[in-house]
Amino acid sequence: MSKSKKRFEVLEHETIDQCLERMKIEGYTPIRRMEEPIFQEVIQQGVKEIVPIGRKIVFEGKKVT
């Protein structure tokens, strides 16, 4: 039995449209989009700061019946 929901992460060198096409090929339709920030610790002038450096986009897909 296959899963009814699956998460698809937009890969590093992939566009959102390419990710959505990959979902469609696997038989899923997007039902939710989530964005998570990516942070990095940087030490500037002896002070540690947490700086956002990017974001991770993840789609939740539902199996098309």
Results as ranks from 00 to 15, higher is better:
I50S: 15
I25T: 14
E60D: 11
P30A: 09
C19H: 00
C19E: 04
K24F: 06
E41M: 11
V10I: 03
F8I: 02
I31Q: 04
K24A: 13
R22M: 03
I38N: 07
M34Q: 09
I57H: 04
F39R: 02
V64R: 07
R33W: 00
L20W: 00
T15I: 05
Q45K: 15
C19F: 04
E36M: 07
R33P: 02
I38K: 15
Q18K: 12
K48G: 10
E26T: 10
R55G: 10
H13S: 08
K62H: 11
G27E: 10
E26N: 08
M1L: 10
I31N: 05
I16E: 14
G61E: 01
G46I: 10
P30S: 09
I31T: 13
Q40M: 10
V42P: 02
I57W: 03
F8Y: 03
G27T: 01
T15Y: 05
T65N: 14
V10H: 00
F8M: 01
E21T: 06
H13F: 12
P52M: 07
V47A: 13
I53F: 06
T29C: 05
E14V: 08
K56R: 15
V64N: 07
Q44Y: 10
Q45H: 15
Q45L: 12
V42G: 03
I25D: 10
Q40H: 12
S2Y: 07
E26D: 14
M34F: 05
K56H: 05
E36H: 13
S2M: 12
L11F: 08
E60R: 04
E41V: 11
I25N: 09
E26P: 03
F59G: 05
E21A: 14
T29S: 15
K48I: 11
G46P: 00
T29I: 12
K24G: 09
E60Y: 04
C19N: 02
T65W: 11
Y28G: 00
T65M: 13
E9N: 07
T29E: 14
Q44P: 02
R55V: 01
R55S: 13
P52V: 02
V47T: 14
K24N: 15
R33S: 03
R22F: 06
M23G: 07
R33H: 03
V42R: 07
V42A: 07
P30H: 03
S2I: 11
